[in-house]
């Protein structure tokens, strides 16, 4: 079943030298699955995620031939429709929880407020506590009463994920949700996301620069370069990637087993961007 349809998505920012297109005709469909978007910084992967939620920062502009979420045309969505979608049916997790949590409100209050949009007052608190447990916070009642600065990075990111998921969205866009975290914490957060996809049938767009991580976690991978999708493939087939850019991204990572020295570097080809 198709949850999200994106056709020919373009994001443009005006600059002194004229408009610059950072996303140039991206198309994909998403079912209830884990889709990875991989690319280097500046490849347009984050702007793709933001454009889907209508969060392209001004003065940028996003256009598309088709941008539909569960049959709703997002291009013509009114502010009211957006309010009923964002944070309720579609959510976003950002890289750094510090910028996304309100520093002067306790985690519990922020969670309850988010839950109140779809639940009654009495139910909201229970839902908040249940959600904190669901993201594997060991001591939910302490975290419930804590302020964001009292939490470690991993805890903060889990609280953030709890907040984004409390309304049980159908679609979650996760923009580098784990790159600020330690590797051992990273795995736990991925496990939580994974379970949500499996148990609740959520659709997940996982944006990352780490091809190996995306390859091991997602079902399908889009590889972006200079605002375009240069290759789309199943994660299991990553080792058989055909595009030289994808191959380059895979090969340039050092391995514990050792390997080539010097590391193969990516020879960028101007034709890839065409």
């Amino acid at each position: 079943m198709t949850l999200l349809q994106v056709e020919n998505l373009r994001v443009t920012f005006p600059t002194r030298q004229g408009p610059s297109e950072v996303v140039r005709g991206v198309s994909f469909t998403l079912g209830r699955e884990r889709l990875g978007i991989v690319g280097e910084s500046g490849s347009g992967k984050s702007q793709t995620g933001r454009a889907i939620l209508g969060l392209t920062p001004p003065p940028g502009r996003a256009t598309a031939d088709r941008l539909a979420f569960d049959g709703i045309d997002l291009r013509r969505a009114t502010p009211r429709q957006w309010r009923s979608l964002r944070g309720i049916r579609m959510s976003m997790v950002m890289q750094d929880p510090k910028f996304s949590l309100n520093p002067v409100m306790t985690i519990g209050r922020q969670l309850t407020e988010a839950a109140r949009r779809t639940a009654s007052r009495g139910e909201a608190k229970d839902r908040a506590m249940a959600m904190l447990e669901a993201v594997q916070i060991r001591d939910p009642s302490r975290v419930f009463g804590a302020y964001p600065h009292e939490l470690s990075g991993g805890m903060g990111q889990r609280a953030m994920i709890a907040m984004m998921l409390i309304a049980e969205p159908d679609l979650l866009i996760a923009d580098e949700p784990t790159s600020a975290l330690d590797v051992t914490v990273q795995i736990e957060v991925l496990r939580i996301l994974d379970r949500l996809v499996q148990d609740r049938g959520m659709g997940l767009v996982f944006i990352s620069h780490d091809l190996r991580l995306v390859g091991s976690f997602c079902d399908r991978v889009l590889v972006m370069y200079a605002g375009r999708v240069v290759e789309e493939l199943r994660a299991a087939d990553l080792a058989r990637a055909r595009h030289p850019y994808t191959q380059g991204l895979l090969n340039c990572l050092p391995r514990i087993e050792g390997g080539r020295r010097p590391l193969p570097v990516l020879e960028r080809d101007a034709r890839w961007a065409l």
Binding site: V183, I187, R191
Partner: peptide, 16 residues
Amino acid sequence: RDLLAASEGSRPAESS
């Protein structure tokens, strides 16, 4: 060993 396991890549489905 935990650190090694975590750096090996992370197919969460395998571990849970």
